[in-house]
Computed example of a mutant assay.
Amino acid sequence: MHPRTDILVIATCAMIAGADEWDEIAECGRTKEPSFRWLLALPHGFRATTRSSVCSSS
C-alpha cells in the first residue's frame, strides 16, 4: 500500500488539474508519474488505487 500522503498529493494535484473522478485521478497519476517520483517515495511503483482501497487504508 502507498503512504497516505502520496495518495493525497497525487489526488490533490489531479483535482487542481481538473480531474473529477477516481479514474481521471488515476490517469493523471500514471501520466505524470515521472514528475511525482522526484517528490514522492512511491515504494511500490505507481498503480491505480481504487477509492475503496484508499478509504480502507490504515
Rank of each mutant, 00 (worst) to 15 (best):
M1L: 09
M1N: 08
M1A: 12
H2W: 08
P3K: 10
P3W: 01
P3D: 11
P3Y: 07
P3M: 02
R4N: 09
R4H: 10
R4Y: 06
T5H: 14
T5W: 11
T5N: 10
T5F: 12
D6E: 15
D6I: 02
I7W: 11
I7Q: 09
I7P: 00
L8I: 14
L8H: 11
L8Q: 14
V9E: 09
V9K: 06
V9Q: 05
I10G: 05
I10K: 04
I10E: 06
I10T: 08
A11N: 06
T12F: 13
T12M: 11
T12W: 12
C13P: 02
C13I: 04
C13D: 13
A14H: 08
A14P: 08
M15H: 13
I16Q: 10
I16Y: 12
I16M: 12
G18Y: 07
A19V: 07
A19E: 06
D20N: 11
D20P: 00
D20H: 05
D20Q: 09
E21I: 04
E21C: 05
W22S: 04
W22T: 05
W22H: 00
D23I: 02
D23T: 04
E24W: 00
E24C: 01
I25Q: 03
A26M: 02
A26Y: 00
E27Y: 01
E27A: 15
R30D: 02
R30V: 00
R30S: 08
T31R: 15
T31C: 09
T31N: 10
T31S: 13
K32C: 13
E33A: 11
E33F: 01
S35H: 13
S35A: 15
S35R: 14
F36Q: 07
R37V: 12
R37W: 03
W38K: 14
W38C: 07
W38V: 14
W38L: 12
L39Q: 10
L39M: 14
L40P: 05
A41D: 13
A41I: 02
A41R: 10
A41T: 09
L42H: 00
L42P: 00
L42I: 04
L42A: 01
L42W: 02
L42C: 01
P43W: 01
P43T: 01
H44A: 07
H44C: 05
H44E: 14
H44V: 02
H44R: 08
H44D: 13
G45T: 05
G45C: 04
F46V: 03
F46N: 01
F46S: 02
R47L: 01
R47Y: 05
R47S: 10
A48R: 15
A48P: 10
T49P: 00
T49S: 06
T50S: 15
T50K: 05
T50E: 08
T50R: 09
T50A: 06
T50Q: 03
R51I: 07
R51G: 00
R51K: 10
R51Q: 08
R51Y: 03
S52T: 13
S52H: 12
S52Q: 14
S52C: 03
S53F: 01
S53Y: 03
S53T: 15
V54W: 12
V54E: 01
V54N: 02
V54R: 04
V54Y: 15
V54Q: 06
V54K: 00
C55I: 05
C55L: 15
C55W: 07
S57F: 05
S57N: 07
S57Q: 12
S57I: 09
S58N: 06
S58R: 11
